[in-house]
Design a protein around this nucleic acid. Structure first.
Length: 260
DNA sequence: TAGAATGTTACAGG
DNA sequence: CCCTGTAACATTCT
């Protein structure tokens, strides 16, 4: 479900709660989702401490002692759920049992959330990483004839932005989501570049305060556009709803549409 | 109650 | 082969 800002917070909070705890037992409920055998996964992780939880694109990476990393992708509906003693959580994919009755599970009613042992490092820049540069964005846009929103959401091009924050970023920069990428003037591409970082970082700051402990809350409080409860943008313009790539898209007529 | 849901990918068509 | 757009995945919630 979540995008970059949410996952950033979840990773921090998960680390806060489970750092330095030893993984006593790993329970695999849906082995089909693994990239290695159940045995291999258990051998790699069981008995080791959780040293860090980091966000990478739309995944969280659990770093364990022994040098192994487990990537977790939540996909559309996946969640990290705390499991209380003797509690049965629905839709589990895998469950982590730490020493001292501390457990959490990766769940997904759609069974699509994916644990990956030692994921390959990606070549694609994360939206908040140093290698996501203005030069990279300019070059990328100049080559693409697709709508800008589709481009922002393509994880093979930029990692971390999804349906919600694509809308937020595009409203923030006053660019219509229907704009064709290569038609956007260079000056506006710079706004877009800055807007991506501004919107994401501000959201991370606000979520940090709002959910200091949660690793699954869905907080819509700070969204300005992509929120069905809102009728108007902060500047008083009517929010319109349309579809791009089968996905709901929120925008206003404050946003300029650039076409070829 | 039918449709939408903060995602990804296989596949079709150009 | 490259580029782009669409449908499907399974279940819950409104």
């Amino acid at each position: 479900m979540p995008e970059l800002p949410d996952l950033e917070i979840f990773a921090v909070n998960l680390e806060k709660r489970f750092k330095n705890k030893t993984l006593e037992k790993l329970e695999v409920i849906v082995p089909k989702r693994l990239n290695v055998s159940e045995t291999e996964l258990k051998e790699a992780l069981e008995g080791h401490q959780l040293q860090a939880v980091l966000r990478e694109g739309k995944t969280m990476q659990l770093h364990f002692g022994g040098g192994n990393v487990l990537g977790l992708h939540l996909m559309l509906h996946g969640e990290i759920r705390l499991v209380e003693k003797d509690d049965q959580v629905k839709f589990r994919i895998i469950e982590f049992h730490f020493k001292g009755d501390n457990s959490f599970a990766l769940t997904d009613f759609q069974k699509m959330a994916t644990p990956t042992l030692n994921p390959e490092p990606s070549e694609v820049p994360d939206a908040l990483s140093k290698d996501f540069t203005i030069t990279y964005l300019k070059e990328l846009l100049s080559k693409k004839k697709i709508q800008i929103k589709t481009l922002l959401m393509d994880q093979h091009l930029i990692r971390g932005i999804g349906n919600t924050y694509a809308d937020e970023i595009l409203w923030h920069t006053r660019i219509s989501p229907f704009s064709i990428a290569k038609a956007i003037p260079e000056k506006k591409v710079k706004d877009l570049y800055q807007g991506i970082e501004e919107v994401l970082r501000k959201e991370i700051m606000q979520l940090t305060r709002a959910i200091p402990d949660s690793f699954n809350a869905e907080v819509k409080d700070f969204l300005k556009i992509h929120n069905p409860d809102l009728k108007h943008s902060p500047t008083g313009h009517e929010i319109k709803i349309d579809k791009i790539g089968g996905r709901k898209t929120y925008y206003t007529d404050e946003q300029v549409q650039y076409n070829l």
